[in-house]
Amino acid sequence: MKNCRLLTFLLCASILFLLPGCWDGAELQKRAVVLMIGIDPSDQDNHNVKVSLQLARPQKFSATPRASTGSEEENTVVVSKSGVDVADAIRKIQLSVDRDLFFGHVRGLVINQHMAGSGILPLMNPLLQSRMASRETWLFVSKNPASEVLKYSPALDAIPSTYLSNFFENRLLLTQPYEATVGGFHQRLVTPGIQPIAVWLGSGDGALSAPRIEGFAAFSADKFVGGLNQQQAVGWMFVENQFPKSSLTFKCPTKQGGQFVVDIKSVKSRSRVIHAGANEPRTVITVRVKGWIEGGACVTNTDQQELAMLNQQVKSEVEKLVKTTVLQCQNFDADILGMGRNVYQFSPHDWQGDNQWDRKFPKIITTMQVQVQLDFLQTYKKFDFNPEA
């Protein structure tokens, strides 16, 4: 019995030596946590790129994080270095700080649009191959220098990268937000008949100390070719069947300058390419919209006549918005709407490759079919109350 207990004890003790431990762990005090990465063209003749890293200041997060209210209370610091490529610039940043750079919390990759116009794959690949940025990292293209975007200190959030990603989710809602990440960019890039997108940033908001989202950045292969503004981004969401449950405002059909609000409950869309093998193919875009009319300057009678008039107004504006978006994409020669993907999937005998489709896409003729089904949010019947009757 004693020998059995001794054998059990020795067996359990020997197993302890086989258990894995934190063999590659590092103390937090020895890490410089990177929150965002920015890439700009270098102003030095012997270098090609300038990389900026937004680093968290751990001493500011030792207590409950608070939003920044002044330069002396900033929760992050931005370090920039120029190099012959992205990896060289990051290596120089590592040599300039006293901690090991840690990229496990990177939330956003910001690329200056001047560099994005020459292609962003050479800039992104070193970050992905060395696992400095995950595939879930938001991808941004900025009109202004990327280093300026990283220097914003939002007044509503202690962590700028968190504020920016949350603001994107709130301002440009997507049912498939992965489309606007680094991984979504690569997925669209290798999918036949569709081009990648990214979030397009503009000048910042001084009151909130945060960049402003312009809309979507359109790409042809990995090269930035232009941007869709916020209205055109909504049109893109209609075509891509990505419009979430949200509210939109429309112009009053009778009252000059008035507007009414529609709470969109569902959007179903479909694109169908006809005569894809012809030199000038045609596409039919069908959009079905359902929602509630919440109110507005032109919502007064809530009767069927007024309802029909407002339905027609919504139909007209949605049709115009989608057509404008399609024309803008054709001007860019960038099929970010995925019309070519439709041909590749449903008419494979007409698919002749991406290069051939890129020549056909600007010539495509679009036909719209918009169906709108709306009702008043509070429908009721008025009764004349007469107590003496």
Score class of each variant (00 low, 15 high):
M1C: 08
N3P: 00
L7W: 03
F9N: 01
F9Q: 01
L11Y: 04
I15M: 14
L16P: 02
F17E: 04
P20E: 14
P20A: 15
C22G: 10
A26K: 14
R31S: 07
P41K: 15
D43W: 05
Q44I: 13
V49T: 07
V49D: 02
L53C: 02
A56K: 04
A56E: 07
R57S: 10
K60P: 00
F61L: 15
R66D: 07
S71W: 02
S82N: 14
A89P: 01
I90Y: 01
R91V: 03
F102D: 08
G104R: 05
V110P: 04
Q113L: 10
A116T: 10
A116W: 07
S118Q: 14
I120N: 05
L123P: 01
L127H: 01
R135K: 11
F140Y: 14
S142Q: 09
K143H: 12
S153T: 13
Y163G: 00
L164D: 01
N170W: 10
Y178D: 07
G183M: 03
G184K: 02
R188T: 09
L189Y: 11
P192H: 13
G193P: 03
G202R: 08
D205A: 03
S209W: 01
A210K: 06
P211N: 09
P211A: 11
G215F: 07
G226A: 13
G227R: 05
G227N: 10
N229A: 11
A233T: 15
W236Y: 15
W236V: 09
M237Y: 01
V239P: 04
P244M: 03
K245Q: 14
F260N: 03
R270I: 06
A276K: 06
A276E: 06
A278W: 05
I285W: 03
V287W: 02
R288I: 12
W292N: 14
W292K: 11
G295T: 05
Q312G: 04
K315L: 12
T325Y: 06
F332E: 12
D333C: 12
L337F: 09
M339T: 09
Q352P: 01
G353W: 11
R359Y: 08
K360M: 13
F361S: 08
F361Q: 08
F361P: 09
K363L: 15
K363Q: 15
T366A: 13
L377I: 11
Q378I: 09
F385C: 01
P387S: 10
